[in-house]
Structure formats: structure tokens, C-alpha cells
Design a protein around this nucleic acid. Structure first.
Lengths: 262, 262
DNA sequence: CCAAAATATTCCAATATGTGGAACTCAGTT
DNA sequence: AACTGAGTTCCACATATTGGAATATTTTGG
């Protein structure tokens, strides 16, 4: 009998191909064949064919200098994925309202395993460009949105998320042990509000609230973020009710829009 | 001996999986199993397993009402794809300059087969949001950027692009037959400038110029776009030199930045 | 409330596909 | 010219995919 692998791994061929794709696409620099080989556990011949297939499919691109970079087909797929996301569409107007009320950056992200994936971001007068943050994954345990989301999980789901969670230190304020983290979640659960006081990025503070449905098939969060020099603790606390209200409003709209039609 | 398929098709298993993924992700509404079955040429059992695998990999999501929608993993991959695109990064400052000079929306897209994939867009004071246009694919034959790009292809590559091109009518001004289109390309080749006078979207005009490298491994275009009521033909002609200059500047920078290190 | 119909899911023998160790090629060096 | 290191190709073998048909589930409507 084949042992189930620890978490992700292999939907047969596709799973392996995706693992390779992600290695290359999420790396911060172009990788050459040997670079990929070094981090992959596939044998030479196999890996080479997998990369070739990914290139043929337009998911990767092989530059003349033999470096693999993300292909254009990914963009095409992603824009569809973003544009058609109903949860994002429902939340958008509330995020904008929250931004107008606070004047600071508003984030909206969903929990996926141990990560938060940002679906939307509303920020100041920024020459927006497709913000590279959108679609980005951040660790859940040290972000406001992530902690808010985790606080809504039941014992079993939380255990699954915590299992193997790496409490990596990003800043001096990062919570780096499991028991402190569980205590923090208790606090968040009581107040319905999560704070991130420079736990993920130095100089960045935020206040967040959870968004979820009864079945916990959706676990997400919304936050207001600002630079520490401009945003005091008192300021965060003052925004808390607004953030909580936005979260409740989004939940209400979600259950109204998505609930019935099931 | 297996006959080579007409164009796209099958890198074995991965190719088929991607075809299914694209069917679902690029559809404008959630598809249920039978919907996908109807447009796919795969047998029931096969298709079902392919969809299951895509769901397991997070590329698709299966909602409780049995509808398949694009998954979050696509977003994660895409943001990397966009953020790390060197061509886009090189072009960005020139696009912004062009926007400042004209005050209208600037597009930048690359040719991929018969489509233009938009890599960037700089527009007026728009509450940007991750513009759904980015990553979008439009037909090359009826867009300014697309026609500019096609005009740089040699006979062989152009033939490949034209083969099987559907000259679908989008507006009364769309060029809908091959010979008129080839004549149009000749014109563009001579002037180095392409106009789109409401050929794709009613009420939308643009002027575009091609961007390419010697080897034609990169074929792209840049354009300035505006609403017909505000942008006259004379205005477009007046912008043409600016657009051409921007294109040349981008090409210069590209050859300087990407050329040597090959 | 229970059949009938439509839809979704599972099964499994046949086989097309992917696997991977080893051989080969093609720079760029020493 | 021999050597190193990277990339690419090969092919007997193993296995994941295939797909027709059976089964399960949900929906319809009488």
C-alpha cells in the first residue's frame, strides 16, 4: 500500500508538472536546468521532459540563454481567475468604503492551508499597475488577515493548519512559538479583531477582522494597513470597529448572494 | 504514424489537462461537469478524472453546486508571472512617459499566435484595481497593438498566424477578409504605425507601433487609446510620432538590456 | 412519496504515457 | 587535444491514464 504523502505532492503526472512549474514560477530569479534539478527530486531525464512539456504548453518560457521563466499563458489564465472570482466581486465595494473611511490600504485575502492569498487590495493614490501583491501568498500566522482567518477554524481544522507550520521569524515582533500563538488566537476569537504590530514586515501595522461562512468552506479576512510611524496603536483600535463592520457586511452579502443558490 | 494535429493540442497528459483547465477558466460562466463534457472531446471517465486532478491541484475549484470555477493557485502563479516579466519591466517607464504626454490610456501587449496578450496598461486616474485587462487576450487582427505586431512578421510567420485566423466582425469597421487585411499590413509596414479606428470596440480608437527584436523572438506593440468622441483622426496622427518614438525607445532599451547577456 | 430521468462518480483491464539510468552532444576550459 | 560541466536524447520498463460500462446520486414530475 502506498503511503499517503504528508500534504501536497502528487496527482500523478499533473501534480509533478505543477510542482516543477511552481518551483520555476515562484523563484525570484530565472532558473537554468541544473538549478531546477538541484531543488527537484526528479531524475535528469524526467525533469527535462517535464520542463519541455511546460514550455510547449506556454506555461514556461525557455529563453535563449537556457533560463526558464514564467510563460504568458499563466497570465491569461490568472486574469480570468481574478476577474471571475465571485467572493472578490462581492467584497470589492466594501473594501473601497473601508478605504475611504480610513484613508489607508485595505487588504482582502482568503486562507488556503497555511497561507493567505490576497485577492484584492485598495490603496491610496498609487499609480496602480497590476499590483504584484494580488495573488501573492503570505504566511497566515504573522499577518493580520491570516490570524483573523485562523481564529475562526474549529479545533480539527486549526490542528491541520498548525501541523507543520513553521513559525519563521520575520521581525522582532513575530510570534515564533506555537503556544503563544494559540493564546493570541484565543484573544482574537474573543474580540473578533486581529492586530498585526510589525509581525510580518518591520514598520507595517494592521488591524483585521475575519470573514467566513457557517460551513467554513470560506475563510478569509479584511484588514486596514499602515506604516507604523503614521499609525499608532490607538489609531488601530479606533479603526477596529470599522473593520469588524466591513467584515460583517461582506459576510451578510455573501450569505445573501451565495447562500440561497446552492 | 500519428498525424500531427493542426496547431495546439497535446503534450501528452499535461496538454490535455491544460486544455480542460482553459475551457473552464476562460469560460464566462461556471461550468458543470456535463457542460465541460459537451465542449470537450474526452470521454466521460477521462474528463472526470482530469477535472478531479485539476481540483486537487488547486487549479480549479469545485463548488458545492457542482460548478467548476478557476482556483486560487492560478492567481498565485500569475502574479509571479507578471511581476517577473522583464519585458514588461523594461517597457514600464516608457509607457508612463507616453501616458503623461498624451493623457490617454497606454497599452502594451505581446503577440502570441493569433492573439495579443496585454502585459501592461497605464490609464488615467482610475481606481486601478488589478485591471482585468492585464493578461487578457484579444484577437490580433483587429487591435492596434495586434496589427502593429503582425506587420513585423516575415512571410512564413505571418502565414502561420493568418492560417485559420477567424476574421470575426466586432464592429462595422472590423476588417473581415484576408486580402484587405494583408493590404492593411502593407500600409502599416510602410509607415511603421497602425491605427485602429473602432475595429474592435465601438467608440474606441487607437494608434500603435510595433516592438520587436531582430530574431523576432519578441513581437509586441504599444498603443495610445481613447474614446472616439474625444479622439479625432487628426489627434491620432499627431500622436503617431510619439508612439513610434516610445516603441523605438523600448526596443533600444531591450536590446541593450537583454541583447548582450545572451 | 415514489418512479423515471438526468447527472455525477467509480471501476478496471488494456495500453498509451511517462520514467529514469545511461549514453551522447555541445560549449567553454585547462 | 583531452577535460569538465551543462544540456539533450534514447529506449526497455513500469505505471498512470484511458474509456466504456456499471453504479451512485441528485433532480424532476406524476
Amino acid at each position: 500500500m502506498e503511503m499517503e504523502r504528508g500534504g501536497e505532492g502528487g496527482t500523478g503526472t499533473l501534480g509533478k508538472a505543477m510542482a516543477v512549474l511552481e518551483t520555476v514560477a515562484l523563484s525570484d530569479r530565472p532558473l537554468r536546468f541544473t538549478d531546477v534539478l538541484a531543488v527537484s527530486d526528479q531524475p535528469r531525464g524526467t525533469l527535462h521532459r517535464q520542463l519541455s512539456h511546460l514550455v510547449q504548453e506556454g506555461l514556461l518560457e525557455l529563453r535563449p540563454d537556457h533560463a526558464y521563466v514564467p510563460g504568458l499563458r499563466l497570465l491569461k489564465l490568472a486574469s480570468a481567475s481574478w476577474a471571475r472570482n465571485e467572493i472578490r466581486a462581492v467584497a470589492a465595494p466594501f473594501l473601497e468604503a473601508l478605504h475611504r473611511q480610513t484613508g489607508e490600504t485595505v487588504h482582502f485575502g482568503v486562507l488556503r492551508g497555511r497561507e493567505i492569498i490576497y485577492l484584492d487590495k485598495v490603496e491610496s493614490r498609487q499609480a496602480v499597475r497590476m499590483n504584484s501583491q494580488i495573488g501573492n501568498a503570505s504566511p497566515a500566522f504573522c499577518t493580520g488577515v491570516g490570524k483573523a482567518a485562523l481564529s475562526t477554524l474549529d479545533a480539527e481544522a486549526l490542528e491541520a493548519a498548525l501541523a507543520g507550520m513553521e513559525f519563521r521569524r520575520f521581525t522582532p515582533h513575530t510570534i515564533t512559538d506555537r503556544s503563544s500563538f494559540i493564546a493570541e488566537l484565543d484573544l482574537i476569537r474573543q474580540s473578533g479583531i486581529a492586530f498585526d504590530r510589525e509581525e510580518h514586515e518591520p514598520g507595517i501595522r494592521c488591524v483585521a477582522a475575519p470573514i467566513y461562512d457557517e460551513s467554513r468552506s470560506l475563510v478569509a479576512g479584511v484588514s486596514v494597513t499602515g506604516p507604523a510611524y503614521r499609525v499608532s496603536d490607538a489609531q488601530l483600535s479606533q479603526w477596529a470597529p470599522l473593520v469588524g463592520e466591513a467584515a460583517r457586511a461582506i459576510m451578510g452579502e455573501l450569505s445573501a448572494r451565495l447562500g440561497p443558490q446552492r
